[in-house]
Amino acid sequence: MPNKVHAPKISCEEALCAFISSQESSSIHEINASVIDLLFLVGLGLYLDLIPLRSLVALARCDKIIIDAYTSGPKYVVEELLKILKSTGKDVVLAQRFMLEGEGIESIVWESQDKDVCVAVVGDPMIATTHNALAVEAAASGIRAVVVPAPSIQCCAIGALGLLSYKMGKSVTVVSPKNGVVYEYPYEVIKSNLERGLHTLLLLEMDLERGYIMTPCEALKILFSIEQKRNEGVLEEQTRVVILSSIGTPSHRVCVRTLGELLQKCDNCGDPPYSIVILSKKLHPLEEEALKYAERGLLNMVPIEGSREVLEQVANILFR
C-alpha cells in the first residue's frame, strides 16, 4: 500500500487564516449576488473558538472590516482577530467611538454603497444600541443589513449559571458617576425585576479606548450608595449576587456571594470582562442546584479540549 501523505500541522491562528483565505475565492461571492450593496453586522462570540462559521464566511467576503474595539472585550479576542485578519491581506480597522456614532454611521453606510463592509463585534452585534442604529440607517438607505448572530453575555450568563431564561428580567448597564451625578436607572431596573421575582443581568461600563473597565466591586459600591440614599430596601445585605468573569474563556469563573459579604470584603472574582447577576429572592430548585455546580466549576463554558486540533485538521484539508 502507498504511504499516506500527511499535511503539515499548523496552529489554530494559521487555521483561521487558511479558512478565510480559502473562502475569498469560493462560491461565497455568489451569496446575495442580486444585491449590490451589503453591510454585514458580524458577531464574534466571546472567544476565538466561539466565532460562528457564518461569521467567518462573512469576514471572508467583506472588502473592509471594522472591529468595534471600544466597548467590546475580552481584549485578547480583538487583538488576535486583528492580527489574523491583517495577515490575510484584509483592510481592517479598529473602530474608535466616533466611527460608530453620529456621522460615523453615515460614513459606514456611504462606504457600503461601493464595497461589502463588515462591522465585527465581540459577542452579538445587535445587543448594543449603536449597532441597531447602524442597521436601521443602512436599511433606510436601501442597503441590505445582514446580521450574523453569535453567543453574547446575554445568553451565556444564563447558560453559565444554569438559570431559567423565563426568570430573567430586563438587563441594564451600570456606569460610573459623571460630573458627580450618579446614574440611578440600574437601581430602578433591579427594583422592578425583584418585585416580579426576576433576576437582573448587570453589564458593567467598559471603554477600552480609555483603558477603563468597571470592576464588580466598583459597581456594587455605586448601587449600594443609591440604596443608602433612597432607603427603599431593594438591595439588602442578604441579597444574593453572582459575579461572572471572562465567561467562555480559559479564565472563566463564577462567584456567588451575598451583598453583605462583598461589601465587607469585595472580590472581583477573576479577570475582566465582568458582569453581575442580582438573583431574585426565590429561585427554582433547579437554579439553586445549578448555581452550586457553576461556582465549583462543574458547570462551565471553558473552551473544549481538542478544539484547536479540530480546527487544525480542517485547515490541513483546506491546504491540500
Rank of each mutant, 00 (worst) to 15 (best):
G123N: 01
D124P: 01
D124I: 01
P125H: 10
P125E: 12
M126E: 06
M126T: 09
M126H: 09
M126G: 04
I127C: 08
A128R: 03
T129F: 08
T129P: 01
T129H: 08
T129K: 07
T130W: 02
H131W: 00
H131D: 00
H131G: 00
N132H: 14
A133D: 15
A133I: 11
L134F: 02
L134T: 06
L134D: 08
A135G: 03
A135D: 05
V136M: 13
V136Q: 12
E137A: 13
E137S: 11
E137P: 00
E137Y: 07
A138D: 07
A138M: 04
A139C: 11
A140D: 15
A140M: 12
S141H: 14
G142W: 08
G142C: 07
I143T: 02
I143Y: 05
R144Y: 11
R144L: 13
R144T: 09
A145D: 02
A145E: 05
A145K: 06
V146E: 13
V147E: 09
V147L: 01
V148W: 11
P149K: 12
P149R: 13
A150T: 09
A150R: 12
A150S: 15
A150V: 04
P151A: 15
P151C: 14
P151W: 09
P151L: 14
S152F: 11
I153E: 01
I153K: 03
I153Y: 06
Q154A: 14
Q154W: 10
Q154H: 14
C155T: 15
C155Y: 11
C155V: 14
C155W: 02
C155R: 12
C156S: 14
A157Y: 09
A157S: 15
A157K: 07
A157W: 07
A157N: 15
I158V: 15
I158L: 13
I158Y: 07
G159C: 14
G159M: 13
G159T: 12
A160I: 07
A160E: 15
A160C: 14
A160D: 14
L161K: 08
L161T: 12
G162C: 07
G162V: 09
G162D: 10
G162Q: 08
L163G: 04
L164W: 08
L164K: 15
L164Q: 14
S165N: 12
S165P: 05
S165W: 14
Y166N: 13
K167M: 12
M168Q: 12
M168D: 07
G169C: 03
G169V: 06
G169F: 01
G169Q: 03
K170L: 02
K170I: 00
S171G: 15
S171M: 06
S171I: 02
V172F: 01
V172I: 10
V172Y: 00
T173D: 02
T173G: 00
T173Q: 06
V174S: 00
